[in-house]
């Protein structure tokens, strides 16, 4: 399970980002737990200055604007890699 957080105080772009990630994960059959972080102090703890921000397994991978589909696929593939050994 990949842990994903979308940082942003509820703007349209933040909602779109969350929906797009869910969509990509579903299309690739990758299990993710997606959470929206809307509280400002928590957002600021990640040191993100433009929202929406995306945090995958505790690491900020993106800040500002809706990420492209290709980028999301890249993140999910990279994060999913850690789990591959379990499949053997």
């Amino acid at each position: 399970m990949i842990d994903i957080k979308v940082l942003g105080s509820g703007c349209t772009n933040c909602r779109n980002t969350g929906a797009l990630i869910e969509d990509v994960a579903r299309a690739r059959g990758i299990a993710v737990s997606l959470r929206k972080v809307e509280a400002l102090p928590e957002i600021m703890r990640y040191g993100v200055m433009s929202t929406p921000g995306v945090v995958i397994d505790g690491k900020v991978v993106h800040a500002g604007g809706v990420p492209s589909r290709a980028k999301i696929e890249q993140w999910l593939d990279a994060a999913g890699h850690h789990f591959l050994p379990d499949l053997d």
């Binding site: 942003g8 105080s9 703007c11 772009n13 933040c14 400002l40 957002i43 600021m44 040191g47 993100v48 200055m49 433009s50 929202t51 500002g64 604007g65």
Partner: peptide, 17 residues
Amino acid sequence: TPFCSCSAVPLFIGFVQ
């Protein structure tokens, strides 16, 4: 610098911080 008003607050805090 790219700016969206929905980012005004995180940007503000980030600068001051």
